[in-house]
Amino acid sequence: MTKTATETPAIAEVLIEALPYMRRYRGTVMVVKYGGHAMGDENAARDFARDVVLLKQIGINPVVVHGGGPQIKAMLDRLKIQSAFIDGLRVTDAATVEVVEMVLAGKINKEIVSAIQSAGGKAVGLSGKDGMLIEARKVSRTQRDPDSNIERVVDLGFVGEPSHIDRSILDVFVGTDIIPVIAPIGVGVDGQTYNINADTAAGAIAGALSAKKLLMLTDVRGVLDAGKNFLASLTATEARRLIADGTISGGMIPKIETCLAAVEAGVEAAVILDGRVPHSILLELFTEGGGGTQIVAS
């Protein structure tokens, strides 16, 4: 399509603004947690694939970690397998963990790989079980009985959390033209399969790789203050204070905690950004204002 005389200077300005950021990030690792609306919408999924391919082509090393909660639910419903959530984690029995692995490491993972390759890139799909990339341990949770005030241990089944990330598996792809796409399935020392929250897996991988940034695609713009004003940047200390006073609440808390763990592990910055916005990754990385809430070490 031919650009108008008005459009051409604007496009040039965008490219000029992006250039110093491209130089800054060249050769670095960016871990992208992919999920939410950006995964479920066909156009958003195509834009995501194009953005990731562009990062690779300009010399950045993206690592994609994806979720798939709605797709897992749809398959469980189809198979008439009951499931429940406790503190945002899916209780995962033996039947459920088989479905989780099938959906995450199979269908979804390969769909993302195919989308990236359709956009002109090369991708390899992995699960955390491959090469023991994500070694996991069983998650334990407690709940307090409101009547007796006694805490009891809740068995979440085969729900795990990363205990070790073998970065050597992912180092193989750095400097190549291949983009790793990782399903958050872990493996225990006894060979047991564990379902891992995708945010948690992405944060652990970012920390292990000393990534430049962890980009967490969500269905909200970012973090809001008590007056519902958008916050473009937070230090770790400020983020913890907002959790303590209740400003950050609900499902945003575990996402922020993942970001905090990542920056404490050496990631330069972790960003909560809206995956519903077209090309949100590019806007975050290559424009002055970014697009989401950036969390940095205090």
Rank of each mutant, 00 (worst) to 15 (best):
V52T: 00
R26F: 05
T142F: 14
R137W: 01
L104K: 04
G36C: 04
T8E: 15
S148N: 03
G222P: 02
K73T: 15
L156C: 07
Q57D: 11
V189C: 11
L76D: 10
A105W: 12
E238C: 09
I253D: 02
H164I: 02
G251A: 03
A269C: 11
I58G: 00
L170V: 02
V277A: 10
A94K: 12
G188E: 12
T293R: 07
D41M: 06
D77E: 15
G125W: 03
G191K: 03
L133I: 11
A204N: 13
L89N: 08
T142P: 02
P278K: 10
S249E: 14
V277G: 03
A123C: 00
P254I: 09
G251R: 02
K122S: 14
R24L: 09
D177Q: 12
R78C: 11
V181A: 09
Y194N: 09
T96G: 03
D166K: 13
A262R: 01
Y21F: 15
M252C: 02
T237Y: 10
G67L: 02
F230L: 12
K228N: 15
A45H: 11
M22S: 08
D51S: 13
L15D: 04
V32W: 04
M22W: 07
A94Y: 09
G175F: 09
I281E: 06
N109I: 06
V52W: 00
C259L: 09
I86P: 00
E7V: 06
G191N: 07
A105K: 10
P162M: 01
V139M: 07
L283W: 10
V63S: 00
R221C: 06
S233K: 14
I179R: 07
E268I: 01
V91L: 14
D130I: 09
L15F: 15
R90E: 10
R276A: 05
G160R: 05
D225N: 14
A105I: 11
D147P: 00
L242Y: 09
T92D: 08
F48G: 04
P278M: 01
G67P: 05
V296P: 05
V153G: 01
K110M: 14
A105R: 11
R141L: 15
G131A: 05
R50A: 13
Y21C: 03
Q82T: 13
R221Y: 08
K212S: 12
A239G: 06
A198R: 05
D93H: 03
T200N: 10
Q71D: 14
A262N: 00
A119G: 04
V31C: 07
G69D: 01
F286R: 02
G275T: 01
R90S: 06
Q294E: 13
R141Q: 15
A95N: 14
A5W: 08
V52I: 15
I112E: 06
V91F: 11
S298A: 14
M39E: 05
I150V: 15
